[in-house]
Design a protein around this nucleic acid. Structure first.
Lengths: 342, 342
DNA sequence: CAGCCGCTCACATACGTATTCAGGCTCGAT
DNA sequence: ATCGAGCCTGAATACGTATGTGAGCGGCTG
């Protein structure tokens, strides 16, 4: 009842009439412990509500059974916090960690901080999951440093872009291509792409590349005037759409590099009197929850966030255990809703 | 470059020509260390990329500088994962933890598991943050056990409902009242309440109570036929609205116990040909992101999720440090949008 | 009967840090 | 020169667990 000292394996040992190492072995299910002894120890442990002291255990074993999830963020947005696409991934990561008996630490990181040494070096975690969009060139050096330090980590991003570390990502190129072919199939020929196409943003870059390849496959070519930079926020999408309108170029469809961009763009287009999908077909990317409740409901290239989270965790754990693991390219799926006019 | 052993405070001591305790003192900023010595030690530490071993430090100090965030969930929903209202709270919790130099563990919990002994007893965390809706009666015994065990914890919930532990919550009663008075002010008199009003769900119960009190203040009384149970999902809201329609009772407004309920209900009402807000005014609760992008944009009672997260963390840390902290009742704010017809 | 093996267990120790205690040093005052 | 008062520092130790090593014991083989 009162503020007793937390029971230790020594306490149990004494009560069970054995030594502390035997308690440790028994509770960890090691073989070579007499079944009767084990049972006695387990019973006493349960009765005392004993828990292995994680700190002591970590110190002795030199690992923590803990993964750290690091979100990288724009220092600018102090409010939106987590990109909605990562929300469902987060849930899946949490679940998968629990399945594998790992704890999960979570934190935000500025690209500029010295996160690359803060977790595994301090033995807070056995491995790192890196999440977040942002200028890839800012990561590159850090990733290299991480790898040189022998840190275990996986990241969500562009699998094709060369770069240090184990990367899990979806088939951005294939997804971009499929979306564009769908628009072409609807008879659209002047397709704008909203999203930064620079290689500094490899995922968007690949989506754009798939888009351009699909155009080429239809004997068309990507019009530079129809590509407008945007990062993955509604505001940026709205700004891009406005820029597109202001530019005066003719277009009958939009492929947005993310759903947030698409939603922001639709808002601006509708405010400008464009009907969706009659005047302009719109397709997004990600399939965040807001996509299906947008008006009109947004056709989009789905990334399987649940599979993504699971793959990240299991790949990381595999790597920690020195198993042979490699990067993974996850499939995308076109979800057809009203916004493209199918 | 290679797989060197991780440097320890002994390594630094040797290089600096001092003893290990001096290194520990210097790096922890303890007073009573010669400034020159301290500088030398700090320089060597930085050069070796030294990090204090958290496991050893935790073992020695007997605390972990870590908080654990426990989400309680319906075992049923394996997909939606986290209630959207908690998303922004999560971001704020992560940030506030970082500000106070605490790490954050996060996990999902089934109400039935033995979570109440898994974290602080194992010294994984110094304190617990409990989040989640659910039948309060299922918590009650566990909370009592937690408190009896001397565990440090705070929970988000109904501040008014008696129960063990330190609770932070918003003014559900006041918010419910304000929403209903607003509807009355618009001339609505037959206001339905969608949400479980039972005391098993204290937060909804209080919102309902505020609603009923506001009606009483206008010489009206709450019609039992206009209260329909619902939990905080869109599906449940849709089902409740359908039940309301099927029940045949006349109504000209809806106060939903959460935004998700409101959004689900609006969908059903609109499908049934009701115009919002012309035929039915709708007000939600929470102000999740989807509220402002619903059609029509949803009037709602905002809970300040950012303040909530910050308050939870700071209260918990205060409690861990044995400072005088108490429960907190956070203010709500009515956000008027189109759905109520103001 | 000697030697061996398998089964259980206890002894000793290591993990890396933080903290208590005591001692050496410098400096100024007498 | 002596002494006390700080100021720094080092030696010793504890935190609780996991693991390498070896001991006792009974049974078995040759």
């Amino acid at each position: 009842m009162g503020m007793q000292r937390k029971p230790t394996s020594f306490d149990i040992a004494q009560l069970a009439g054995v030594s502390q190492p035997t308690v440790s072995r028994a509770l960890r299910g090691e073989s070579g412990v007499n079944p009767a002894t084990r049972l006695r120890i387990e019973s006493i442990a349960k009765q005392l509500n004993y828990r292995v002291d994680k700190a002591a255990s970590n110190l002795r074993t030199r690992h923590s059974q803990t993964l750290a999830l690091l979100f990288f963020e724009d220092p600018t947005s102090d409010d939106s916090l987590i990109n909605p696409f990562f929300h469902s991934m987060l849930g899946s990561i949490i679940r998968t960690c629990a399945e594998h008996n790992h704890d999960l630490l979570i934190s935000f990181q500025q690209l500029s901080s010295d996160w690359h040494t803060d977790y595994e070096d301090a033995r807070k975690a056995d491995g790192l999951i890196l999440l977040g969009y942002g200028d890839f060139e800012l990561y590159r050096a850090r990733l290299k440093a991480l790898q040189d330090a022998g840190t275990h980590f996986v990241r969500w991003g562009s699998v094709l872009a060369e770069g240090a570390g184990l990367t899990i990502g979806c088939d951005n190129r294939g997804g971009g291509g499929e979306a564009t072919r769908h628009l072409l199939g609807l008879g659209r020929k002047k397709i704008a792409f909203l999203g930064t196409a620079s290689s500094h943003y490899p995922e968007f870059h690949e989506r754009y590349r798939g888009h351009a390849e699909a155009l080429a496959g239809a004997e068309l070519s990507a019009d530079p005037a129809l590509q407008i930079d945007a990062i993955t926020t509604e505001e940026s999408g709205a700004a891009a759409a406005q820029a597109l309108l202001d530019g005066g170029a003719d277009f009958d469809a939009i492929l947005a590099a993310s759903d947030l961009i698409a939603i922001g763009a639709m808002r601006v287009l509708q405010a400008a009197g464009k009907r969706i999908p009659e005047d302009v077909s719109v397709i997004g990317f990600d399939d965040i929850p807001a996509a299906s409740s947008a008006s009109p409901p947004l056709t989009t290239v789905m990334q399987d966030a649940r599979l993504a989270g699971r793959t990240l965790v299991e790949t990381l754990i595999g790597r920690i255990r020195e198993k042979p693991v490699g990067p993974a390219l996850l499939p995308t799926k076109l979800i057809v809703r009203k916004s493209c006019g199918a």
